[in-house]
Design a protein around this nucleic acid. Structure first.
Length: 564
RNA sequence: GCGCCCGUAGCUCAACGGAUAGAGCAGCAGACUUCUAAUCUGUUGGUUGUAGGUUCGAUUCCUACCGGGCGCACCA
């Protein structure tokens, strides 16, 4: 409907003032002002040489003559320089009905590849990896929801000093073979920590580790065997974690596989894109306002840069994309500016198709979580600690089987963590507070799931037909109309979230939806409502609410439960 | 030193250049014989880091300064 209003406004402005402009129609700051607002009268006041209020009044008078406008709008008023539009309950209802069935698509769908996750093997994932998984997956879901074709990719560092350190520790321990996957990856993490310590404090160990690192590249049979075996533990563990998080990625790239391809990609372009400098192959970024980076060292080994060259060409060969979104922490922003420039120069067909999104760095607001181990919080610890808190609350619930409680606690845990990560602008640094993230009150994942479960409970207890068009007139209470007005915004919110790649827009929206429902819930009855028309329309209203909550949460990677 | 990003309520965060700057938590005062109280209602709390500038209008754009984060060649 927004397009309709924009168009009609444009016509009015043109006929009244012989002016063409793109009138900005938006949601007003408060629903008290209506469903749409425009400040176009203020914007053109200077050109027209009339007061904004007068212009607004003229436009409004004109619009009121328009029959299409009249049928859709309850009121259209000029308030100062603002023009406020309030839709009728009927049109609002019809629109909500539509949007719960299907979401509109973007005008020009794209093939988009989203890369996220990127955990290293031979180490446990920390909170930053969890953040990347959750944010990247949500972005992919949102872009997909508006009609793009999206595939998800992961890129894992399975080679390099960190692996050598872990293998060193592992060999020192006599290459034990624990039973469970959990024990295996815990062991590798411990080996890494010890290797890391030895590397810094013991010169002999340092030499050994450097040697192991070299042997991996040289495909030394003995080391390769150990490397492959332990790597598989890690990769299996990550697949398990991804499954737990509800994430399924189409492509899993390994850094070790990009080694040769990257070298080739760089060497083919020496003299064109890259140049030799001090024995190394570098990309001189200064002409582009960037900095110079080394792609192949003077020892002849490829750096991460070279591997990224290989990776991003490989991705296009595997799945030709219109847009390749690489997400990482923002500390790599400058790095990716250089990489993308070099990639575009070496591969003109990729120009404009690679976009880096550097999201904020996660830091712990307190040391509470890490006090136990003295280490960076690992992702699994975080999930398990959250789950323990959920189970405490759930233990007091009656009428739920143990199996149900288990399922519910896992879903609620993921909702709590995912929502905590997605509720703020992903580009900004985030302070992660365990206490707050597992607090299930207020603006939280569990709050929204709880609201959804309440609706499901209502729908279980009332078995009545859906509302008819006539019933809609019975929506009169502010707690009802406020909710309906808010539901109406859903498609545009999703569209905006996709356009700006901002999952937090949806998180905010879904939260407010739940909030408005809870207000409604505390004020209005459905089960015991004597007026059958009111009962029907309220039932359908909460049904739509549930559908939109479910869909919105799904875009955040959050699943719902019917009972909690 | 150079470059990029960020400073909004006690804390964590919202706010296409637009209306009285909004939420949650914490604090205070209330609401469970009623479809799930992980809920709801009311309330306290702001010179949007500082100083200028542009604009009818600035948290938003520009400049300087102060404070914080990150990056700047053979690591990933």
């Amino acid at each position: 409907m927004k397009e309709l209003f924009t168009e009609k406004l444009q016509q009015q402005i043109l006929t009244l003032y012989q002016l063409t402009c793109e009138p900005l129609v938006t949601f007003p700051s408060s629903t008290d002002f209506g469903d749409y607002t425009t400040n176009v009268a203020m914007a053109i006041a200077k050109q027209v040489k009339k007061s904004p209020a007068e212009i607004a009044q003229n436009i409004v008078s004109g619009l009121k003559q328009d029959p299409e406008f009249a049928t859709k709008c309850d009121s259209i008023t000029a308030q100062g320089g603002y023009i406020n539009i309030t839709l009728g309950t009927g049109p609002l209802w019809n629109s909500v009905e539509q949007s719960t069935v299907s979401l509109f698509s973007v005008s020009q769908p794209k093939r988009i590849l989203v890369e996220y996750g990127q955990p290293n093997t031979h180490k446990l994932p920390h909170i930053g990896h969890l953040f990347s998984y959750i944010v990247g997956d949500s972005l992919a879901r949102i872009l997909d929801a508006v009609g793009n074709t999206v595939v998800k990719a992961n890129y894992q560092g399975d080679i390099g000093p960190h692996v050598a350190k872990s293998l060193y520790g592992y060999i020192q321990l006599g290459q034990p073979k624990p039973q469970t996957l959990q024990e295996k990856v815990m062991l590798l993490q411990k080996c890494y920590q010890e290797g890391n310590l030895a590397y810094d404090s013991d010169p002999v160990a340092k030499e050994t580790i450097d040697d192991i690192n070299k042997k991996i590249y040289q495909k030394d049979p003995e080391i390769t065997q150990i490397w492959q075996e332990t790597k598989k533990w890690s990769l299996d563990f990550y697949l398990e974690l991804e499954t737990r998080l509800g994430i399924r990625q189409t492509f899993h790239y390994l850094e070790s596989d990009m080694y040769e391809y990257g070298m080739k990609a760089v060497q083919e372009n020496v003299g064109k894109v890259f140049q030799e400098s001090d024995g190394a192959i570098v990309f001189p970024g200064e002409p582009y306002g960037l900095h110079t980076r080394v792609f192949i060292t003077k020892k002849g080994t490829p750096t991460y840069e070279a591997k990224d060259m290989g990776l991003n060409v490989q991705k296009y060969e595997d799945w030709p994309y219109d847009l390749n979104i690489i997400t990482t922490a923002s500390e790599q922003n400058a790095y990716f500016q250089v990489i993308i420039k070099a990639l575009e120069l070496a591969n003109p067909h990729l120009k404009g198709k690679i976009q880096h999104i550097g999201f904020g760095m996660v830091s712990l607001s307190t040391g509470k979580m890490s006090s136990r181990t003295g280490q960076i919080v690992n992702a699994v610890e975080l999930l398990d600690a959250t789950k323990a808190r959920v189970q405490e609350i759930l233990a007091e619930r009656e009428g739920l089987s143990e199996t149900q409680k288990n399922e519910i606690s896992e879903t609620v845990t993921l909702a709590a963590v995912k929502f905590a990560f997605l509720r703020q602008n992903i580009l900004q640094n985030m302070k992660f507070d365990l206490e707050e993230s597992v607090s299930f009150e207020g603006k939280s994942g569990p709050y929204i799931l709880y609201s959804y479960a309440r609706i499901m409970s209502i729908l279980r207890s009332v078995e009545i037909p859906d509302a008819t068009t006539k019933d809609v007139a019975e929506l009169t209470d502010p707690s009802e109309t406020q909710l309906l007005r808010w539901l109406y915004r859903y498609p545009e919110v999703i569209h905006q979230a996709a356009a700006t790649m901002a999952p937090h827009t949806i998180a905010e929206y879904v939260y407010t939806t739940a909030q408005l429902f809870n207000t409604f819930y505390s004020q209005q009855q459905i089960k015991n409502e004597p007026n059958q028309q009111k009962q029907r329309v309220r039932k359908s209203l909460v049904q739509y609410t549930a559908q939109i909550l479910k869909q919105g949460l799904h875009l955040l990677g959050i699943e719902t439960v019917d009972t909690m």
